[in-house]
Simulated assay, not measured.
Amino acid sequence: MRLAVIGLSLSSSWGNGHATTFRSLLRGMHGRGHEVLFLEQDVPWYAPHRDLTEPDFARLALYADPEDLRARFAGEVADADAVIVGSYVQRGPEVLDWVRDTARGTVAFYDIDTPITLSRMGRADHYIRPDQVPGLDLYLSFTGGPTLGRIERDLGAPRARALYCSVDAARYRPEAREGRRRWQLGYLGTYSEDRQPVLDALLLEPARRRGGAFVVAGPQYPGGIDWPRGVERIDHLPPARHPGFYNDQDFTLNVTRADMVAAGWSPSVRLFEAGACGTPIVSDAWEGLDALLPEGEAIVIARGPGDVEAALDLPATRRAAMGRAAREIVRARHSSDARAAELEAFLEEAA
């Protein structure tokens, strides 16, 4: 299959979760024998932070603007067996109209921000219009559960399918550590105003109460945050360092955007990355999480700082068992190859 993807970014993981999502998925597609072209707009905020310029699983091409995209890549879009346009593509409605007019194969929209998309649908500055949804062959959504029915029923999508993030289980795996791990609890994520109160309750407050070694990694945190003593800050952690980061923690924390919590069934890639490393996970609560990673068996679901502290006090054998359970689930259901196989099936169904 010849697959063309127009997405926010493949080259830079700085300040976005799209790049790691596309890297894992497209690596899986390449491993299954498909030819992949990724088209990304060259923007100044990602240009200084590119950490993957020559992927070995896809051909990456940068375009200056939609006019340049149309001028240089119309032939390849027309000839592709399937074309996927991602959320947050600049001038997205214009790009999607062009793709629908140009492509002869299956046309899909991959919504990596589904609850946000639905809440903003119809705004002039948004990346897909409501009238474009019925004309798609396939609506791929980062959010599953009841939201899929809403996309079909209310927006007229002919088929909406959940395509969660995934992880390359060959790259994310347990690593041996001698003695104690570096941190008791860590968090990896770009600053978000709506996530910050949860991060404060589930990591900063336990750090204030008990002391010890904690870490928060990710860019764009404002200067006014009161970081407790013992909380280390890492401004940006490139993907190549993620496995080591998870392996240096007794537990890792997952915190979910408010829109995703409200919709439920919206796992982040951090869940699957940590799970693949066998690192025990503490997460905030949302509908559908227990169906993905059973509570108490493969994950701790925390509703307050006391739940986090209780998890940190679990014996090492119990933590290890939870990490192994999460790893088995992630390798079987949420690996690059597993997600690529799902995408294959969806595209065949739509075709």
Rank of each mutant, 00 (worst) to 15 (best):
D101F: 11
E76H: 00
Y46K: 05
G218Q: 06
G149C: 07
W265K: 09
A310L: 15
G144E: 01
D168P: 01
R195G: 12
E297C: 01
A240Q: 13
R241C: 15
L202I: 02
H34E: 13
H30D: 12
G224W: 11
R50T: 00
P222A: 14
E193W: 10
H334N: 04
L289V: 02
W183V: 02
S24D: 14
A103Q: 12
D137W: 15
L188P: 13
W98Q: 07
R339S: 10
P48C: 02
A103F: 06
A338E: 04
E35W: 00
D284A: 10
P305C: 06
L136F: 15
M322H: 13
P66M: 02
A325N: 10
D200C: 03
D97W: 14
T117E: 05
R59M: 03
G230F: 00
H334F: 15
Y187T: 04
T102Q: 08
A78S: 14
P238K: 03
V77A: 01
R153Y: 10
E175P: 07
P267Q: 08
I225H: 11
V83C: 09
P239S: 00
R129P: 01
G105K: 14
E349V: 05
D235G: 07
L203F: 13
S141T: 02
L148H: 04
Q184I: 01
A47P: 04
S335D: 06
H126M: 07
C277W: 00
G244E: 15
S266F: 08
V95A: 03
L343K: 02
F346V: 00
T317Q: 15
G135I: 14
R120P: 09
A350T: 02
D307W: 08
R91H: 12
L314R: 15
E349Y: 10
R324F: 08
V269S: 12
V83H: 04
S11H: 00
D284T: 07
Q41I: 01
G7H: 04
D42F: 12
I281P: 11
R104E: 09
L271W: 09
G135V: 13
L155Q: 09
D154Q: 08
F57R: 01
D113N: 14
E273P: 07
T279E: 11
R327G: 05
L292Q: 04
V282N: 14
R333L: 15
R120T: 05
A258R: 10
I128K: 00
A61F: 11
P280T: 14
A321W: 08
D226F: 06
L163W: 12
E54C: 00
S9E: 13
P174V: 07
L343P: 02
G244M: 10
E54T: 03
P146R: 01
